[in-house]
């Protein structure tokens, strides 16, 4: 780890001013990903601006019937928050599917959105990686790519975004509130993370010097019919091979509205509004679910080791939709998949 200067921000304005003065600086909140990347010399900030003590640790009701989650709310506090458990159980479930309780106690809401890929080529500075060193090539394309993306890839990068929480935030249509040198703005969740294209070094659409201050949930929480199904190499404490978040509104046996997002398959949480539209108005049955899965995966492409993910994703989508429709969401402690 290279040496760095440590400073503590006293306010949002102080934080924004501090980072504007030093483009090589980074914000640190929970630190669970950044400090690890610094140990690997993947990240080499010359200054760390500690924003962990800013008063952004509240979960508050909004006037529109939604919830505003401060950027410093810890993942564990959010997962077990009574309002989240009652009104947005798919978010609670997704958070509990990720990491360990120790890491969730440390990791912040804002930091979860900003975590980097766990692609092994990104982490090893001896290997090529267009995300870490633009122009150096992609080691995963013809390398060990079992964990890698099947949707939205480019010739420059096939890394996946690792968050579970963000899959739920994508299907809930969260909004991301940010502050920066040009003031405050709000970013729709689908517009927050990016596909790799020719610029895989950019994970998201934050501008230089901007920081996340809150994540806002609209009122629709899909609390009756939801599921978060995560398929991984061991039953707990592993990143997703494929995960599926589902929220349904069902009336008289028919789907009124559907939300569907996938994790572990792309450079961002993968939401497909065409598949959602195909579900709307249909009876909730396996044939309909299979048709939606086929739409999601219409352009899926494997890279050798990860070809299995396409069929795995198809089955996981059908299973998660079935769980949601039946009102029997996947348990995050009893891992039997019913």
């Amino acid at each position: 780890m290279i040496n760095f200067q440590y400073v503590r921000a006293n306010s949002i304005a102080d934080a924004v001013n501090l980072i504007a003065d030093d483009p090589a600086a980074k914000f640190v909140a929970g630190g669970t990903n950044l400090i690890d990347l610094m140990k690997m010399d993947v990240e080499q900030p010359t200054k760390l601006i500690d924003i962990s003590r800013l008063a952004l640790d509240k979960v508050e009701d909004t006037a529109e019937g939604g919830l505003r989650i401060g950027a410093m709310v810890r993942n564990s506090d959010l997962a077990y928050h009574p309002a989240v458990e009652a009104r947005y159980p798919v978010l609670s479930s997704a958070i509990r599917a990720g990491a360990s309780q120790q890491l969730r106690n440390m990791a912040s809401t804002g930091g979860n959105l900003l975590q980097r890929t766990r692609c092994a080529y990104f982490y090893d500075i001896a290997l090529p990686c267009n995300k870490r060193t633009p122009g150096s090539g992609c080691g995963a394309l013809a390398g060990h790519n079992r964990m890698h993306a099947i949707l939205g890839t480019s010739d420059a990068c096939i890394a996946v975004f690792p968050s579970d929480m963000c899959v739920a935030l994508a299907l809930l249509e969260a909004r991301v509130h940010v502050s920066g040198p040009n003031g405050a703005r709000t970013i729709a969740f689908d517009a927050f993370h990016r596909l790799p294209g020719e610029t895989p070094q950019r994970d998201n659409n934050l501008e230089p010097g901007e920081m996340i201050v809150a994540v806002e949930l609209p009122s629709a929480g899909f609390a009756s019919n939801y599921s978060y199904l995560k398929i991984r190499d061991r039953l707990s404490y592993a990143f997703a091979l494929v995960s599926v978040g589902v929220g349904l509104e069902i009336a008289d046996g028919r789907i009124k509205a559907a939300r569907l997002a996938l994790g572990g398959v792309a450079h961002k949480p993968w939401r497909d509004t065409r598949a959602e539209a195909a579900l709307a108005g249909q009876a909730a049955n396996e044939a309909v679910f299979r048709q939606a899965a086929d739409i999601v995966l219409r352009d899926a492409r494997g890279f050798g080791h990860n070809n299995f993910k396409i069929e795995l994703a198809r089955r996981a989508i059908i299973r998660a939709l079935t769980q949601a429709a039946n009102g029997t969401p996947q348990s995050q402690s009893n891992k039997k998949i019913a």
Partner: peptide
């Protein structure tokens, strides 16, 4: 235990 909550002490800086 950090202020009563379990954390992994390898991934936080002492100065924080």
């Amino acid at each position: 235990l950090l202020d009563g909550r379990r954390v992994v002490s390898c991934l936080t800086l002492a100065v924080m």
